[in-house]
Simulated assay, not measured.
Amino acid sequence: MILRHVREFDYVPVISMIDDWRGGRHMADMLPKLFFQHFQDTSFVAERDDQIIGFLIGFVSQTYPNQAYIHFIGVHSEYRKVGIEKRLYE
């Protein structure tokens, strides 16, 4: 597994999978493209065999710079409970 910073071009693959990863629950509206454009330094993607298997979108508070906010985390259902969420948070 490879962890890297999110890039703008990750938006389409993530947004096309997120509803399926959440059991068909409509979540795509909660994840606008601006997060992939403006929070790349504080957001991450987990890849395996060149496929996105997880991601975390977050940012540092402008008001309290020693605090961060996790907006969204998603992991492919086949890869849950193997520690990907923990690695993304770390």
Rank of each mutant, 00 (worst) to 15 (best):
M1S: 11
W21I: 05
I84E: 03
W21Q: 03
R48I: 04
F36N: 05
F44P: 00
H76T: 00
I84V: 11
E47Y: 00
R25Y: 09
K86I: 10
Q51F: 05
H5C: 13
Q37D: 02
F39G: 04
A46D: 02
G58P: 01
W21K: 05
E47P: 01
F36T: 04
T42A: 08
I18V: 15
D20N: 09
K33D: 12
P13E: 07
E8R: 15
S61D: 03
I70E: 10
P32S: 12
V14P: 02
L3P: 00
S77E: 10
V75T: 06
L88V: 04
I15D: 04
S61V: 02
E85G: 15
S61Q: 09
L56M: 03
F35A: 06
F39H: 14
H38W: 14
I73W: 01
D41G: 08
R80Y: 03
D20E: 05
Q62E: 05
Q67C: 10
R87A: 08
S61G: 06
I57L: 12
M1F: 14
I84T: 01
I2A: 07
I18R: 09
E85N: 07
T42K: 13
L34F: 15
T63F: 05
V6Q: 07
H76F: 01
R25H: 07
R22C: 11
G54L: 06
Q62F: 13
E47L: 06
S16C: 11
E78H: 00
G24F: 12
P65Y: 12
I53E: 08
Y69T: 12
L34Y: 15
I70M: 13
G83D: 08
R7N: 14
I15G: 06
M17C: 14
R4Q: 12
Y79E: 10
I18N: 11
H38R: 15
V75R: 00
R4F: 09
I52F: 03
H26T: 13
R80K: 10
R48H: 07
G23N: 09
Y89G: 06
I52Q: 02
R7F: 05
V60A: 11
F72Y: 07
Y11I: 12
E8H: 15
F55G: 01
Y11W: 15
I15N: 13
D50F: 05
L34A: 09
Y64K: 14
I2K: 15
D20Q: 05
V45Y: 05
R7M: 05
I70Q: 09
Y89E: 07
E85I: 00
P32I: 10
P65T: 11
I15Y: 06
H71I: 00
I18L: 14
A46K: 08
D49L: 00
N66R: 10
H26F: 13
Y79M: 06
F39N: 11
S16K: 08
R22Q: 09
D10Y: 14
R25Q: 10
Y64L: 07
Y64P: 00
R4G: 09
R22H: 15
I73V: 10
Q67V: 06
A28C: 08
Y89W: 03
S43K: 09
Q37H: 10
V12C: 09
H26A: 14
